[in-house]
Design a protein around this nucleic acid. Structure first.
Lengths: 352, 352
DNA sequence: CGAAATTCCCTGACGGTCCGAATTCATTCG
DNA sequence: CGAATGAATTCGGACCGTCAGGGAATTTCG
């Protein structure tokens, strides 16, 4: 059975398509009794109005091709003061979202939930009155709870690993794969004692994907000397220096570029004697090799997903949430030996 | 002067509205020269295509058609004889694909590439003559190369972790997350010496995500006694038994249910003294706890992605491939202690 | 040279909206 | 009492950009 349309439904009821349209939108032009009859029949026939279609038609009809844009809400949940890095990360995501949304005929509006923004209940009414149905949630500290929103009205994507309240589709960088690719690259450049330092909280929210990949690859890349990862609550100069001197990694990976100074203070020459890679290019000033998490692309993909769902009239919490990931990319820099550089010590009896 | 519309512009140029529409979207139905002329005129007149309007219209036109909207090709690349498990896995995926595709008005057809099927070049012509544009590639052993196909005609998804020739969107189970969830569950049930055995080849194609998660979580779950993973080229009774006796894990995870027999032969009682979880429910006969990789859901999601791209006229290799994953689910079974069972040894001085 | 394939463009139909016109029915006024 | 006014409802026309199918003109091939 083909999906019912306004016209087919009108024929069945012996009314005109116009009356149906007006009735379903609750126009005062139509008698209340007729409205009720039409709505009941529509429900019985399984007719579903696509609000986006309606909006487009309306604007089209009214204003002669004047550029009409749909609206996406980009929502930030800010419970505590943000770090400057967190701000950069979210801005970069938002820029990617805005760019892709614009290509697809949407504009974005930012909302902030929390002490310095609106309450969740207030957001719900704002979105409702503005007719906004597509939401993109920027990563929040901890595990946010948005189950209060009237989800039957919205379709949404969370730009982080997972969210349980409610369980939504997520879009995030593929940290595991990125670490794997990074280690392969470093290995190809001749590094054999890769070291990883990290604040536990950063990796914990990723379910330790950075370290998980690091541990597994240390085992399976040929010729590696294992260096235990430095995982601490807070990375300080003292703990780093102690670790660095004790295990002497030939390349260091971590989030904080300041570690380069600490390494130099230990006598390391970058890139001659040691290498360094920052695990997030947004934390650097461009003066070292770094991992680009492709936040712009992530935002773009998030926008695509939400807009696709809007066009297909899919609202509410998905039956089965999925996670969409994009691998990161290494940005080369002056803190790494280039490819093909002879290793510090040429292997005596190399055996591939 | 009011904003120009497709129709007004068409009148000026002496063309039909359809030709304008096709030209502006770059359809191959219109001569290149005409396209250029139209585009120039549109620019001069200040006509701007509204992508949202176009998308909505397209959606509307298509959905109105009969329920049959096209055919998806499900393609298997079989270079070597398949294992019976491999067959089950692919069949389960295919079933999920077919079900979801059917809901969305698509039919599926199976194709086999390889010694017992068609050559790649032949497949290309078959797909072309049949007018099939949406492809879903089932997992292949190794890293298949499909770059020969005329990709500008197709839109595709690969049902595995990654493919480089060409780089396509992929859909796969989230093995890392699944292992994390499994270890948390086992921990909650009181197990403290989880053990993992695996054939290297199985984990290698997943970039060691099973073991990566295992290694990381062993470090961070409280009260765990670490048991080294048994990673071997081929799991035999001898190697398993030696490992099992030496480290005495209190719960064993692995792909091969036969290990239960080997454990029993060592004196283990399931579930009383030891637990067992099979890492892929398709390998079991339903007689043990197992991880359900949700192949049906994966197939469904793959179908959704391809159909979404078809409906949006997105063909060719994506600009940036992404990976979509779905977490697995533990199927409880008689080889695990239920929740809340007192541990074998109550901790003397428990400290949460 | 005739038949078949290809290239290129057009007509017709479509869904949901807005606006003006048409229809019905009650009320008011000459 | 008949006609005019007005309010309450419903309908028809026109419109947006798209898609499916058709047809004329050109090229290719037997």
């Amino acid at each position: 059975m083909p999906a019912p349309t306004l016209r087919s439904l009108a024929r069945e009821l012996g009314l005109s398509r116009t009356t149906l349209s007006d009735a379903l939108r609750g126009s005062p032009r139509v008698k209340a009794e007729t409205v009720a009859r039409v709505r009941a029949a529509a429900k019985a026939a399984g007719y579903e109005r696509n609000p986006l279609t309606g909006a487009v038609m309306s604007q089209l009809r009214r204003s002669r091709g004047q550029q009409f844009r749909g609206v996406l809400a980009v929502i930030e949940i800010i419970e505590q003061p943000q770090t400057s890095f967190g701000v950069r990360y979210n801005e970069s995501l938002a820029a990617g979202i805005a760019a892709r949304a614009n290509d697809l005929g949407f504009k974005v509006e930012r909302f902030i939930v929390g002490p310095n923004g609106v309450k969740l209940g207030r957001l719900d009414t704002i979105l409702h009155t503005r007719g906004i149905q597509g939401l993109i949630l920027l990563p929040a500290v901890g595990f946010p709870d948005l189950s209060e929103l009237s989800w039957h009205r919205y379709t949404a994507v969370y730009a982080d690993y997972f969210i349980d309240h409610p369980p939504l589709h997520c879009v995030c960088s593929d940290h595991y794969r990125s670490m794997v690719a990074l280690l392969h690259e470093l290995h190809a450049r001749g590094y054999r004692r890769p070291g990883l330092f990290m604040e536990i909280a950063l990796d914990e929210r990723l379910q330790f994907r950075w370290e998980g990949a690091f541990l597994a690859l240390q085992k399976y890349l040929p010729g590696i000397t294992e260096v235990p990862a430095l995982q601490v609550r807070e990375v300080t100069r003292e703990t780093f220096t102690e670790w660095f001197k004790r295990y002497d990694p030939d390349v260091v990976m971590g989030h904080f570029p300041v570690a380069m100074d600490w390494m130099k203070a230990c006598g390391a020459k970058l890139p001659k004697s040691h290498g360094f890679v920052c695990l997030n290019s947004l934390r650097t000033a461009g003066d070292c090799a770094a991992v680009d998490l492709r936040t712009g692309l992530l935002g773009a993909r998030a926008a695509e997903l939400v807009i696709g769902q809007l066009l297909h009239n899919e609202f509410g919490v998905p039956e089965q949430p999925s996670l969409t990931t994009i691998p990161a990319k290494l940005i080369d820099g002056p803190t790494l030996r280039p490819m093909g550089t002879p290793k510090a010590k040429a292997p005596a009896n190399a055996k591939t």
